[in-house]
């Protein structure tokens, strides 16, 4: 009987241990996601990852996940990761691999960068046909062209102690 009990305990803890050490693959939700040396927003940036980059989640500390990506191990703000591979439904860039020089470009897009998709011709034609004012059509195009600069956004979050910078 005692042997049976020990077997169960062994099986239970054995399985639990296995599930903890097996790294789970998650994906980067947005381009220019920072891979950092520590679980702190102000720690050294090891590199920037592109949208869709697969990472192995190794652990968790506060709002950060410890991950391994392209041979590097570091920390990523948890809301920058998803369990499901992004579909590319209008996101901001292709997956170019990890930690390469091209990833740095994503952080330096101008405020009025080009949008992946503009106002659809179907929408524009329909709006014109229905008599919408050209100013309204132009306002939507302007809205789509407007791109928040990643560095400006990061500074904004840091100053407000928001996002990864929140206490």
């Amino acid at each position: 009987m005692r042997l049976l009990i020990y077997s169960f305990i062994f099986l239970f803890f054995g399985f639990s241990f296995t599930s903890q050490v097996t790294a789970e693959t998650w994906y980067v939700k947005k381009s220019a996601t920072k891979l950092q040396a520590e679980a702190k927003a102000r720690s050294k940036v090891l590199g920037k990852l592109n949208k869709g980059t697969p990472v192995d989640v190794l652990g968790k500390s506060g709002k950060f996940y410890k991950v391994s990506a392209a041979g590097e191990t570091g920390w990523i703000f948890r809301f920058r990761l998803t369990k499901v591979a992004p579909s590319g439904s209008g996101g901001d860039g292709d997956v170019l691999g990890a930690l390469g020089g091209q990833q740095q470009i994503a952080a330096r897009e101008s405020a009025y960068g080009s949008s992946i998709r503009g106002l659809s011709p179907v929408s524009e034609e329909h709006a014109i046909k229905k008599g919408a004012s050209p100013a309204s059509i132009e306002s939507v195009k302007e809205m789509e062209r407007y791109k928040v600069d990643d560095e400006a956004l990061d500074k904004f979050l840091e100053e407000g102690r928001l996002g990864a910078y929140a206490d």
Partner: peptide, 13 residues
């Protein structure tokens, strides 16, 4: 996006 874009024009209008 095509539906939303057309509606966005309508919102401004």
């Amino acid at each position: 996006k095509a539906i939303g874009g057309r509606l966005a024009v309508e919102v401004f209008n």
